[in-house]
Design a protein around this nucleic acid. Structure first.
Length: 669
DNA sequence: AGGCGCACTTTTTTT
DNA sequence: AAGTGCGCCT
């Protein structure tokens, strides 16, 4: 297709954005106003106007979004799109680091994921009680938040976990140990992956000039979700490349990762000179869907200055269904899907949006029961499942005998080997550089089954063929794994061929591992082919940027939107509101909102239970006061008596007024 | 001492 | 599904 016919498909503002002269620009656009279309058109226009495709770098937030943009440009331009790259910030930084090790250093470092990070923190946290130190996963959160927002640990704790400020010193010590161990073991965590590059280009004009010389244009999708660490990457490049950023402040839902839509509101101050364009016409949804979405955002104390104006006109009124419990909610959705299917709709026109991966399980069960084909996106990635990690640990050991975390995981699997033995043994193994020395040491270990060493050796001999090495590892470990995971072994066993397939064609174990640490793949995605007709079951966070004809927003109940635990924290409550906003604005033709709860009855009958967190959850519920005419209401009576409601017992308002002590700054590695 | 099985809770969101 | 805590076994 020619570029002219592409431009003709755009409206005036989209066309202006796509075809403007080279300069820094922010394109502000509401949901469904054609953000992706504009970024695709921009890339296509640049290439058609003699920018080589490989001088354009597109940055997106997920691998899926990145791939989609490139595919759509390719659809327009065919082979002329060759060389166009779209990546996540993380894969982009990794490719820069690998491309020029001399510029960035960190040769031979490997990337660890969240789980590994957690294990390390657990190690340094030790046996401290819940009063002395937060749990390892919270330490991870604090650490990562400080890195992503480029704040001190103290500032992070003050904002996020005031009750821990008085333990600042101990927590700081744990984090310093963590950083030292990372360096010693040549690990990079997710934040390091970005910071290695950011640090270098913000302090070395030569490094910055080199990166800048690679590109003419950097196109950033979903810019409202960029955090200060990511801006640390973009800011120094301003002098050498043109930044074309597309975003929507009302869809900023990654605050927990340090995203701050200041980057949108103050764009012209930190990127200058620059222009700001707006896309205000919504092409996606019928007016009734926009009315509900606009109403929701208008209830916010924040001013988004945003009213979506639709061009599609009227359609069907959104539905609001109330169920007695989650089980009936899930069952009804499955039944409704069956009805639609019988009426001739395709499965793939439907998307079910859940707030948490956990909530997706109940829906999954209902879909399975009715044999409705679905893809689940946003749950636990294939490589994050325990049994796959277990097998991968041997590959990691072979690829890098200094991989302490892999050794610990691998050794602990064997009968008679527990935490103490593993800690002692791994410490010893870290003294050796070579795998063969490690093996010699292991052979000497009394009461070790011979399988331990056998597996390592088999994998070692097959390491040039990653898929075969993986298959061999599975064979060698099958017995112990079957015992470990006997409860649902059959289901887990099916994952191994999928991983084996993904391993095919990778030149080395480390290349294979590196790719999937940064680009998580979900079980269903391996089986899924785009042309296959399936319902999409997805978390709202993963669904950003997507759309479907019919969308179900699930469990829009008090206590869930917003989550009970964030009530009282205005910033977080407003982020929750944006999450719901994102969910509602995915729908093109029909929006079906479902909610559960006996608790709702209590609320609507004006008899909230006294003094509990539940009452507060109900008071702050986003659908309170929704005008009747925006929804078609339906209450589904239960055949069983209502089940006791959730309690609000874990909600405590955060203490206020924190005393400040001198902060240990978290150094960047 | 160290390992292991059992009962128990406990779930935000993602690179 | 995975983490935690507890008590029993070697």
């Amino acid at each position: 297709m020619s570029i002219n016919s592409l431009l003709e498909e755009l409206n005036d503002s989209q066309r202006a954005a796509a075809s403007m002269p080279a300069q820094h620009a922010l394109v502000l656009a509401g949901a469904g106003c054609g953000k992706t279309k504009t970024i695709v058109a921009r890339a296509a226009w640049l290439i058609s106007n003699s920018t080589p495709a490989d001088r354009i770098q597109i940055l997106a937030f997920t691998r899926r979004a990145a791939n989609e943009i490139v595919e759509r440009v390719r659809l327009q331009l065919g082979d002329r799109a060759n060389g166009l790259r779209a990546s996540t910030f993380h894969t982009w930084c990794t490719s820069l680091r690998l491309r020029a090790p001399a510029v960035f250093g960190y040769r031979g470092f490997s990337c660890i994921d969240r789980e590994d990070q957690n294990q390390l923190f657990k190690l340094f946290r030790g046996k401290a009680t819940a009063e002395q130190l937060p749990p390892a996963n919270e330490l991870c959160d604090f650490y990562s938040f400080a890195r992503n927002t480029i704040q001190t640990l103290e500032a992070t704790l003050e904002k996020d976990a005031p009750k821990w400020v008085k333990h600042l010193e101990v927590i700081g010590k744990v984090m310093l140990s963590y950083e030292k161990r990372k360096r010693d073991r040549k690990y990079l965590d997710y934040d390091d992956v970005l910071d290695v590059v950011a640090q270098r280009i913000s302090t070395s004009p030569e490094a910055c000039a080199w990166v800048g010389s690679l590109y003419d244009h950097v196109l950033v999708d979903e810019v409202q979700d960029t955090n200060p660490l990511q801006w640390k990457l973009l800011t120094p490049l301003q002098n050498d490349v043109n930044l074309f950023c597309v975003g929507d402040d009302a869809q900023s839902i990654f605050g927990f990762r340090g995203a701050d839509f200041w980057s949108v509101h103050s764009f012209s101050e930190h990127v200058s000179p620059s222009i700001t364009l707006k896309l205000e016409q919504n092409y996606r949804s019928t007016q009734e869907i926009l009315d509900v979405s606009n109403w929701l955002i208008s209830q916010s104390p924040l001013n988004y200055d945003k009213t979506l104006v639709g061009i599609r006109g009227a359609g069907r009124l959104p539905q609001l269904h109330t169920f007695a419990n989650d089980w009936e909610e899930a069952r009804w959705i499955a039944e409704d899907l069956l009805v639609r299917r019988q009426e001739g709709a395709l499965w793939r026109e439907h998307m079910i949006l859940v707030r948490t991966a956990y909530a997706a399980r109940k829906i999954e069960a209902a879909l399975l029961a009715k044999e409705i084909p679905y893809v689940l996106i946003g749950g636990v990635a294939l490589f994050a499942t325990a049994h796959v990690r277990d097998v991968l640990s041997v590959l990691r050991i072979v690829a890098n005998p200094q991989d302490e975390l892999a050794w610990m995981r691998f050794l602990k699997l064997w009968p008679g080997v527990g935490e103490k033995t593993v800690t002692r043994l791994t410490e010893e193994l870290m003294e050796f550089e070579l795998l063969d020395d490690c093996i010699r040491r292991l052979v000497k270990e009394p009461k070790f089954p011979p399988g331990v060493v056998e597996v390592i050796e088999v994998v070692k001999n097959l390491q040039q063929n990653v898929a075969m090495a993986f298959a061999a590892a599975v064979r060698g470990m099958q017995d112990i794994l079957a015992k470990e995971y006997h409860l649902n072994w059959d289901k887990r066993l099916r994952d191994f061929p999928l991983v084996e397939k993904l391993a095919e064609g990778h030149g080395s174990i480390s290349a294979f591992l590196e790719q999937y640490v940064l680009d998580p793949v979900f079980e269903t995605e391996v089986i899924y082919k785009p042309e296959v007709d399936k319902v999409t079951l997805i978390t709202v966070h993963s669904a950003k940027g997507t759309e479907r004809e019919v969308c179900y927003a699930v469990n829009v109940s008090p206590g869930a939107y917003p989550l009970t635990r964030v009530v009282g924290n205005q910033e977080e409550v407003e982020e929750e509101r944006r999450v719901l906003y994102v969910a509602l604005t995915r729908a093109k033709d029909e929006l079906i909102v479902t909610r559960q709860g006996y608790r709702l009855w209590a609320y609507e009958n004006q008899t909230p239970p006294d003094g509990s967190g539940e009452a507060e959850a109900e008071e702050s519920y986003f659908l309170n006061g929704v005008p009747d005419h925006l929804f078609e209401h339906q209450v589904h009576q239960s055949d069983k008596p209502p089940i006791a409601p959730l309690t609000g017992k874990d909600y405590e308002p955060p203490p206020m007024g924190i005393v400040i002590s001198s902060p240990p700054r978290i150094p960047t590695s």
